[in-house]
């Protein structure tokens, strides 16, 4: 469902050109659980941003659900992000003035879904992530683990096909971190494609497929635990 063909991504830093991604070819099937590891600056976040259509490849082709993303205009890109992709960030990125429920319903608000249907969906997601009693709390009234679970709820409310997590446990303690990982894996088991960028070898070991990146290239692609 995700296919990257000869993807290059170059950045200009001063008068030097940095090859953040260098000839990436990658096929990810529906429902896979993939981890991406590598040192800082190896291009793993850039790879995630390109898969999430937040960034554009300098050259190469990208297909998402058989659709050529490289040809899309800005409006089509934002629609595709809204429908097919869920993001989970290291620093949660919750809107501080909105309650947990309001944060979770944001993608539905952007998609123009009617309020009654939104409430229903938010209620379901809140219950399935055991956040029902936190619905009307603002982010500063939540613990780190709860915040990340609210972020996961927000990322999955539109029932996307891909969930992209960039260091989802990076700002969490051991216990909350493993709770978040368990939550993500449960979603993967229900069919969502999960791609996790991480420094944590324990997380990489739990994934069914693991990429190693160095200097913008994939140096190893391990299938199976």
């Amino acid at each position: 469902m995700i296919r990257l063909e000869q993807i290059h991504r170059d950045f200009e830093v001063g008068d030097q050109i940095v090859h953040a991604l260098n000839d990436i070819n990658l096929d990810i099937a529906h429902g896979e659980y993939l981890s991406v590891m590598g040192p800082s600056g190896s291009g793993k976040s850039t790879l995630l941003n390109i898969i999430g259509i937040l960034d554009h490849a300098t050259s190469g082709r990208y297909f998402l659900n058989e659709q050529n993303v490289t040809d899309m205009d800005e409006l089509a890109e934002s629609r595709a992000r809204n429908r097919h992709i869920g993001f989970v960030f290291q620093s949660f990125h919750l809107v501080p003035r909105l309650t947990a429920a309001q944060n979770i319903e944001l993608p539905l608000v952007l998609a123009g879904i009617a309020p009654a249907l939104r409430r229903q969906k938010v209620q379901q997601v809140l219950e399935s992530l055991s956040l029902a009693d936190r619905a009307h709390h603002t982010p500063d009234q939540l613990s780190g683990g709860q915040r990340q679970r609210v972020a996961i709820a927000r990322a999955t409310i539109t029932e996307p096909s891909v969930l992209l997590a960039d260091e989802p446990t990076g700002n969490l303690d051991q216990k909350s971190g493993s709770e978040v990982i368990v939550t993500l894996e449960a979603l993967n088991q229900r069919g969502i494609t999960l791609i996790v960028v991480t420094h944590d070898k324990n997380i990489a070991d739990r994934s069914l497929r693991s990429l190693q990146m160095v200097d913008g290239r994939v140096v190893s692609d391990r299938h199976g635990r």
Binding site: L54, S78, R81, L110, A111, R154, T158
Partner: peptide, 11 residues
């Protein structure tokens, strides 16, 4: 964040 969640330039 709004852009990542699917907000278009116009929105």
């Amino acid at each position: 964040l709004l852009k990542a969640l699917g907000a278009s330039r116009q929105q």
